[in-house]
Computed example of a mutant assay.
Amino acid sequence: MKLKHSLIALAALAAVSAANAQSNVTLYGRVDLGYQFNNKVNAAGDSLSELKNGGIAPSIWGLRGTEDLGSGLSAFFNLESHFYGDTGQLEGAGRLFRRQANLGVKGAFGSVALGRQYSPALLAHLGTDPRGFKEQFSMLYPYALNQTTAPDTLNDLGIFLANAVSYTNSFGPVNVGAAYAFGEQAGKFSAGRTASIGGSYTGPVTVSASYQQIKNVAGTGDTKQWGLGGAVPLGPVKAKILYLRTKSDAGVLAGAETNVGVWGVGVDYVWGANTSTVAYYQGKDKETSGALTDKTKTLVLSNDYALSKRTTLYAQLAYADYDAGSTARTSIIAGPVVAGEKQTVFGLGIKHDF
């Protein structure tokens, strides 16, 4: 009996070892916290000091895994959660895997994924936005806040696509991705439906392009967004430029038709363990004019210091000039927009990846 038990234990151990040899699961994540000061958060001129989560990147944790299926094929999955490092709370209505929950297969043909995942339109411009879509002071907010206000479970402001099928592949220096997200609204087949495509060329220079269309969940109108960007390396310096145009039909956002164009230009300078950035962004809604013109101009200065491959100290400063009709749709600053005023936001923090 003792020998029998030993043989069973050895067989179980061999099975576990074989499974581990064929599959790989990784726990990963990031915590980003720091101090942030905003000199003006309302018309009364009040300021705000806070312990800020996600100064340059969101605090996340996740699981990802792959399994070798043979013949050059592999299966993969991604589960990714978003949380507030300062309070420990989940971000996004308490949903555990708000960012990613997908499964797919990849091989020489490319990669096919099913489930909640990043929009290909967003990923295309990571190398051309002057601040790389950082969590603060980048094109991330105009990109998101100008897309349809469909429920978070559907398209999450165009950043993450739920109920989606995607295809991605690389052809030498050219990377392409396309996705289709089912709206899954009873009685309204098109409501919340999203089509997204993005691509980039990375050679002596970088060029990026994207297009995304989201059907309004109310069944009236939609949002169309396209973007074009470029980056040119010059030794320790890299110059970047990105333009996004978003048009929303009446009734989709604040009730009125919008036509927002936002462009940004900037320069990264690498010296030692430091990366210093100077960037300028300007956004305007062409459907507004006169005293109600929605236009914002913002200058950003920042420096990232790599303490190690995983840990970064950062300092950043944004100065925004708001027109009388400015809204969050033309601003790159997360937080209250004080129309007709000038606003300065300073941040100092640390980011650690694991």
Rank of each mutant, 00 (worst) to 15 (best):
E67M: 12
G54Y: 14
N20S: 13
G203Q: 05
V16E: 07
A250T: 07
F171G: 03
N163D: 09
F171T: 00
Y167D: 06
V112Q: 09
S17E: 07
L154H: 02
R131E: 07
S74N: 15
G94V: 08
V278E: 06
L154N: 03
A12G: 05
A144L: 02
L7Y: 09
A75C: 10
A12H: 04
K286D: 15
H352F: 01
G29L: 11
P236I: 02
Y314I: 11
A15C: 06
Y143R: 00
L299C: 08
A256D: 10
A57E: 12
S138W: 04
T293Y: 08
G115N: 11
A162S: 15
K297H: 12
L348E: 01
G183V: 06
I159Q: 03
V217I: 01
G94H: 07
G110K: 09
M1R: 11
K134M: 13
T246L: 01
V41W: 06
G29S: 11
P204W: 06
N259Y: 00
S23L: 07
G251P: 05
L73Y: 14
K247G: 01
G349V: 01
F109D: 11
N20T: 09
N259R: 05
A328P: 08
Y143S: 00
V278T: 10
A315P: 09
N175I: 05
Y35I: 06
A150P: 00
A57L: 08
V112A: 14
T312I: 11
F133T: 00
Q225P: 00
